[in-house]
Amino acid sequence: MKLSYKLATISASVFFALLGVLFLLSTREFPSTFGIGPGYFPRILSSLLIVFSVVSGAGELFRKDEFIDLPKPANIVLVISSGVIFIALWHFLDRFYLSSFLVVSIMLFFLDPQPPSLKKAGKSIATGALIVVLVYFLFGKLLNFRF
């Protein structure tokens, strides 16, 4: 998958400029003491953010476009969706080790470049279990993390 560098930069600049506007508007709620209240510093920063985002985006308009190569978009989707699923499972099941085991095994299965087979599934489950057991001993037992 290829992305236009110019388009992506302009989109990011617009996003950051809007973020600046949002912060700037929010500072209006803050009280002002001697003019140097809680909104003083964020107001300067958000104004500068808007200016530099516009400068950065506008500068890109005059440059030759390049393409950003994003190979294996399916793997990007896989990693991102695994993260979302992991957080959702942990939140709703409230079982860290079970959620971890499920997501780790799934990630290992799909990311392993070998063709799908029962052996591969077994290997993914075994490796997933091993990683979770290691996490249990290192973080759960040794470092006393409360999951």
Binding site: F30, S46, S56, G59
Partner: peptide
Amino acid sequence: PKSVVSVLLGLLLSTMGMDVFTGISR
């Protein structure tokens, strides 16, 4: 310009939370 934007974003995000001078949530 992009590095300046990165700096400004970092500074701006650091202002989130309670203001140490007034205790106001930002």
